[in-house]
Computed example of a mutant assay.
Amino acid sequence: MALCPHPASAPPLSVDESAEGQVLSSFPFCDLNEDDLAQNPLFARLLSTLAKQLDETGLSVQVKKELQKAEREIHLHKMTWLRSESLFRLVQELLQEYHLKKQDVQISEEDKKFYETLEQCLLVTQCSRELDPSSTTARDKPSLLGLSKQNVLSLLPPDKEIKKMKQRLVKEIEDLLKKKCFNILCFYQPDWEGESESMKTVKLSRLPEYLENESKRLESLKQRQRENTILLQKQTHCYLNKLLACINILQTLILVHRLQTQNELDRKKTQYLEAKCQIMILKIRMEMVKLQMDIYTPKKIAVHRTIRNTLESALMSEKREHESLETKLSSFEILGQDFEALVKEYSTLRQSIENKKWALQEFSQYSK
């Protein structure tokens, strides 16, 4: 196996557009574009070499051949199994119809003998398969109830009845298959249900061709869908790259231009908040003035002014009287303790006189 040369010693490679398109078409599910191949020529050469040895799914040519061979063998075994399984299901369906039909309709002896022989042969065949060791069963498996395959096969009907049953079974199977094919034909094209049996038979012979064309059309649609999926993946990749580039540009705008204007934005925001605060203060003051105007009407203000003037006049009179009394008191304080004793004696006599006046008034009231 040849070694890959070092990038420094490798000759420059030039991959033309057709080669790049061929490499990309060989690996449709790879997340690559022509720019990636142009920037990595050694990788492009590697992919071009691998494209000759691998298919679009990543399998080598040899593995692909072995896989196709295995698929053909599996298909062959599957068809063999489906053939025997279909025949078995048809026989079972015939027996089910017989058991349902005999509940309502009188069955002839010939039909009864045919179905009983068919059922007996089917049961014996199933039992013999269970008892017969094969490559799919363990050879040392103990026999069921001590029975062997020969014991079960001895329960088959006579050869004459079996031969007669087989001759009729072919016709019954053909009729049942024909009925099912007509059902499939009518399901494929419901408009053909009302046509004659001969016309249905003719169209039934062409049904494989119709189904094959339909299968090809569906396969073409699937291929187109796969191509659209690949194209969508490429466009999605391109879109994501463009989106990342736009995000980087927006990030640059945010980190550079917005930070430069952040101080100006903060100053403007501060001014706005200050103006808003002043407006709120003025609004509060306006509400207070409005409340005062609602509470204090001109009539109430005039009354309050009158009360204020009266209270101020009374206050001035009290102040003058207070000053006069303080002047007299200061003049009395000059006389000293002797005057204070006279004042106490005068107060006592004044109180005694008042008491006697009250007593005299009370006495005069009760004496009447």
Rank of each mutant, 00 (worst) to 15 (best):
M1P: 04
S9P: 00
A10Q: 11
L13K: 07
G21K: 15
N33P: 01
S48I: 01
A51K: 11
L54R: 04
G58D: 06
S60V: 01
V61H: 11
V61L: 14
R72S: 08
L76D: 10
R83N: 07
L87T: 11
Y98S: 02
Y115H: 07
L118R: 00
E130P: 00
E130M: 14
T136M: 07
K141Y: 09
V152L: 11
L153E: 12
P158A: 13
D159N: 12
K166W: 06
E172T: 01
K179E: 14
F182N: 10
I184L: 15
G194K: 11
S205T: 06
L207G: 00
P208I: 07
E214V: 06
Q223P: 00
Q223C: 06
R224A: 13
N248I: 03
I249G: 02
L250Q: 14
Q260V: 03
T270P: 01
E274D: 08
C277K: 14
M280R: 14
I284D: 15
M288C: 08
P298H: 03
K299S: 15
I301L: 15
R308S: 14
L335M: 12
F339T: 07
E340Y: 02
A341T: 10
L349V: 04
I353V: 14
I353T: 05
E354I: 05
S364R: 14
